[in-house]
Computed example of a mutant assay.
Amino acid sequence: MADNYDNGDKDRRELLKLKQGLVDEKDSNIKETGYDVRMAQTPGEKTKNFLWYHKVMIVVGILLIALAAVIYAEFFVKKKPDITIYSLGNYAMSIRTGFEEGMSAYTPDFDNNGEHNVTIDQAVPDQYLGDVDLFDQIKNGKCQVFIGKESELKDTYNSFKNAYGQPIFSDLSEITGESGYLINLKNTAYGKRMQIYSTEIYVAVRCTDDESERNAMQFVKNLYDGVYYKQN
């Protein structure tokens, strides 16, 4: 009985040495079959074991990261606009967001990326800084279309013309049939479809005599005539 106990204790010590790599399996009296009892020693073996035992968690983690990337791209990354609008009016964020979503359907896909997008930049609320930003947008900015109250757009037009001696907004007679550089969105097909009745919003196109002006004119014409594109 004591001999069996001693032999069992010896086998356990031998097995422990074998697992720790202190003895080679071929020199050991204990022969394991079906699995490797040797503990991982090299960094490669440890990495392999880690990946094997945690493969489910790793796969789930990768899927969560991919999902987070998709959500971030969808909701937080600003899409490249086909038309950029400068808003002189201090409209609420909900109204501007509604304009962006509603007007996007009326802009052609000028950059051929398969999407129709409109972005509205809000004027700086400070009077002095707002004037500086507005004139910078008119001279050098990326905004092709301007919206706001009739009085705001007329004041901007007259101030710039007096300062530089040239008109800043394009003649929209080819769209409306009447001479003028402003269109009341309430009287457009877009305005009627979106039921713009109480909010005073006029639209003007920046006069640049280039492709951006032609794109803006096409966009405003679509608003006026009611030509819109089905969004995917």
Rank of each mutant, 00 (worst) to 15 (best):
M1H: 09
A2M: 08
Y5N: 10
D6N: 11
G8A: 12
D9V: 15
L18Y: 06
L18S: 09
K19Y: 08
L22W: 14
S28R: 03
N29D: 15
K31H: 13
K31F: 07
E32K: 11
V37D: 07
A40T: 11
A40K: 10
Q41T: 13
T42M: 06
P43R: 05
G44H: 05
K48G: 11
N49P: 00
N49Q: 14
N49R: 15
Y53E: 09
H54N: 15
V56P: 00
V60W: 06
V60M: 14
G61F: 08
L63S: 11
L64E: 08
A66C: 14
A68N: 14
A69F: 13
V70F: 10
V77K: 15
K80H: 11
P81W: 04
I83H: 02
T84M: 13
Y86T: 02
Y86I: 02
G89M: 02
A92P: 06
A92V: 05
M93A: 15
S94Y: 11
E100W: 09
M103I: 04
A105N: 05
Y106L: 04
Y106K: 03
D109I: 11
F110C: 08
F110D: 10
N113H: 06
G114L: 07
I120D: 04
I120R: 03
Q122W: 06
A123V: 04
A123G: 01
V124T: 12
V124P: 00
P125E: 10
D126R: 08
Q127Y: 11
D133W: 06
I138A: 06
I138Q: 02
K142R: 15
C143M: 12
Q144P: 00
G148P: 06
T156Q: 00
N162H: 05
Y164L: 10
P167D: 12
S173L: 07
E174G: 04
Y181K: 03
I183T: 01
I183Y: 01
I183D: 02
L185D: 00
L185K: 00
K186T: 09
Y190E: 04
R193Y: 14
Y197T: 14
I201W: 02
I201F: 02
V205D: 00
D210S: 11
S212R: 12
S212N: 13
E213I: 07
E213K: 07
R214P: 00
N215L: 07
N215M: 14
A216K: 01
F219T: 05
Y224R: 00
G226W: 04
